[in-house]
Structures are given as C-alpha cells and as structure tokens.
Design a protein around this nucleic acid. Structure first.
Lengths: 234, 234
DNA sequence: ATTACTAGTTTACGAGTAA
DNA sequence: TTTACTCGTAAACTAGTAA
C-alpha cells in the first residue's frame, strides 16, 4: 500500500475545493489569500489555511505560497473528486446514471487480451456479466474531455470481479460497468462492458471494453475509428 | 427573527442528505437504519444517528422513528439545499449559469406594483439595473418542476437592492437576477429581471419579473399565458 | 434488532504570534 | 499585508448503556 500523505479529506475540504473551482482554479493557477477564502467559507483564516494544506496534502491542489498569498490550481485528482460529486447530483436530479465517453479505437498493448483470458477472470465474467467475452479487449483512446468525465464512473455501483492469488503473483480485482458502443455510422452494440482495474493507473486516458463478440468486426472498426461508449449503471 | 432549531447543518450533514437523496428519500418516505447509513457514510452508528437528528432539527428531513429503523423523507428545504449544491457543480463543469423556469402568467395580488414604485427602490433600480422599471410586476405561477429548480437561483450572485427604514415600517432588501422572458410564440424580451425579497416567503411558487416596459404588452401576454423565464447570472 | 443518551477521549477550532 | 505555527478551549467523535 502506498502511504498517503496522512492528511484526510473530509467534506469540509471538499466544499473548499468546490469554492476554489467556482473561483476558477480548474483552469490553471489562480491567486488566493486565506482571508478572502475564509470569508467565502465563513470560517477563520487559520481554518482556511488548514483546509488548503489538507487539499495540498491529499494532492487535490498544487500550490505555490508567495509573500502575499498563494497560487492554487486543482489537480486531476482534485477534479476527479469534484466530478464524482457532480455525478451524484446528476443522478439525484436528472436520474442520469449514464456517462458518454468519446474516443478513437487503438490497438493498445494487448495486455487486456491476456488477462481476461485467464480462467480466474473468465469464470466470473460468465457468472456475473452473463456471457463469455471475446478473448480480447477493445481499447479506446479517450479524448481530453472524456478523460476528465470518466471520473464520474466511480460514482456508479460496479459489478465487481474478484482478484485471487496465483502461483507466482496476485491478480487484482476489477470493476465492470454495462456499456453500449456506438460507431460513427450510428450502429450500436449494446451488450458490452467497460472493465477497469480496481487499482487505477496513472494514465486514465485509455478505456477497455469487453463484449461477447469481437467489437471490431461487429461495428466495422479499425485503429483510429471514432466510437462513443455509453456507460450506464448496473 | 424566527428562531432556528439550533442545530447547525455543516458539510457532513449535507453529505448525509445527499446519500439519503441517492437512496430515494426525495420521492417520499424511505426506510433507513443508522447502521446501514453508518456503513455508507463510513462513520459510527452514533454519528449517523446524530447526523439524522441534525437534519431533522434543520427541517431538511421529516422522519418517523419506529422500533426497527426510521422512515425519512427530504423536505422542500432539504431539496433546496441539494439544488443549490447541484447548481454549483453545473456551473463548474457546464459553465451553466442560467436556470430556465416555466409557468403561467397570473395577476397576482398587485403588491409588487406598490413596492417597486416606492422611490427608495426605484432609485436603486435605475442605478443598479440600468433602467426605470415599468410600475408593475409580471407574476408567473411556476409549474411544479420549476418550483423545485428555482432554488438554484440562490447559487447566483444577485444584484442587491438595499432595504431601508421608512416612517412607519422597514422595507426589506431584495435580490435581482437578469432574465429573459419568452412567450409561447418564441418572442423574447431580454432586458428583464427576476426580483425576490431577501427573506423568502413560504410559497415559492410565484415569480415576479420587472422590466423597462410592460411585459404583458410587449409579449402579448394575458392571465394563463405560458412563459419561459431564462434567469442568468449577473 | 433498533435509536439515542451519557461519559471519556480525540479531534478541530480560533486567538495569538513568528517569520 | 501574507502563511502557518503553538496553545488553550470547544466541539465532535466513539464506546458503552438504556429504552
């Protein structure tokens, strides 16, 4: 387990992060002072300072303290936290439990093919997804906006694929989300699933999709083909 | 000043309210137990219990404690709090700082006409809105959905009209928000403002709109005419 | 099983201060 | 002015218990 920086992010800190976002800290560095923030948050300057330290410690913001204030920008991790929150509210008020992710088909590294073929995973797919997947994953290179919005997925209740201990190594758990893949001709393949490892990587710009059939054939896809992946709740 | 019940609603309580909403407590009474909630909130059952008491005290939820749990439903005030939160996130991610409110023109009580005609208000309108309003307000009976979504307005930065002390009584402050009024023919009148008293009434189903001209003439409106009021940020 | 009280501990807070 | 430290106090937490 990688040691966290020890500073916990509670709801107060998240509310602070929301205010920073409203003040423009998502679009690059923005200058703040603890006193102005304290007024907005209706607390003391000391508490405002502590909140920023906590967000910094959790790597939700990058900041540079200067003599007359500090320059703050929200990190990708911080934005993801806000996206998850947004997804919750969208679900509450819009009933929207789907996320649309756009990108281009890529050949990827072929790792996915190896992993999903392992019996330990395959048996669970049959049991929990209701089909035996084609032995290969469709890799999608997400566009910039979708890289950001994919964080909303984590507000969904996933179908969990358990990990297990192998002979030489351990195989980690994975999360599956029902998905429909649409090509640029508007054809849709409905019975697919987005699959992501429980422990997320650093580059979240690739999406892996599994399905009972070979999606490249079903939807006439090749490298570079634009696809829309509609991810829904279980 | 009406005495609040003394229980403060912090970010922890709001997060709890969000979870209740996600679990369906907006659509009527839903049954919960503190232990199941505690698990979801990652706290102790005692804390879950206190959160619910706090939400109850703030009148954000109605609840009925029974022997094996409690029936909880979110009140209008609670839903408004969530709507304000949602509006913040929409602004962050969609850049949307506008709210669309639908309703039907009504004659109202004619109070608005009296109040806005007072010199104490009128001078501020000229100064801060940039025009002298027609001496009358367009009253709109909001439909059910708009009654709920109007809470999002309170996340906007209003144009503040100050109150003052009169000879016999005090005249309270009011908030104005730039608005465009659209009739069912699609005609739009852009230079209008929604005006609301700072101290909100209990019935929030009426919207009052002021404009430099008589909106009923400009947009060919009569009682019962459907209008769309697009309220934007200052 | 519940909810919610009381008691003891921990954590968070704001005032004051230093850099 | 800033930020962030220390410190004494106040609030919030969990454990145990009663209803």
């Amino acid at each position: 387990m990688v040691a966290a920086t020890g500073v916990s992010v509670g709801h107060d800190e998240l509310a602070t992060l929301k205010h920073l976002a409203l003040l423009g800290a998502l679009d690059g560095e923005e200058k703040f002072s603890c006193s102005s923030l304290a007024e907005r948050l209706d607390t003391s300057t000391q508490t405002a300072s502590r909140r920023l330290q906590a967000l910094d410690g959790a790597e939700y913001v990058d900041r540079e303290v200067v003599s007359d204030g500090q320059w703050i920008s929200i990190t990708d991790a911080g934005e993801s936290a806000l996206q998850r929150e947004y997804a919750d509210y969208r679900r509450i008020f819009e009933g929207e439990s789907s996320v649309e992710l756009d990108g281009a088909v890529t050949s990827g590294m072929g790792e996915g093919r190896h992993y999903i073929s392992l019996p330990g995973y395959m048996e669970q797919f049959v049991d929990r997804l209701g089909y035996e997947p084609f032995k290969g994953t469709l890799n999608v290179n997400l566009d910039d906006e979708s890289v950001r919005t994919r964080a909303r997925l984590s507000s969904f209740e996933p179908i969990t694929i358990d990990g297990w201990e192998g002979d030489e190594r351990t195989y980690g758990p994975a999360y599956c989300y029902p998905a429909t893949v649409e090509n640029d001709a508007g054809d849709r393949y409905e019975q697919a699933h987005v699959i992501t490892p429980e422990r997320t990587h650093h580059d979240e710009d690739q999406l892996e999709v599994i399905a009972p059939a070979k999606l490249r054939d079903e939807l006439d896809l090749e490298d570079g083909s634009e696809v829309i992946v509609h991810v829904s709740e279980q």
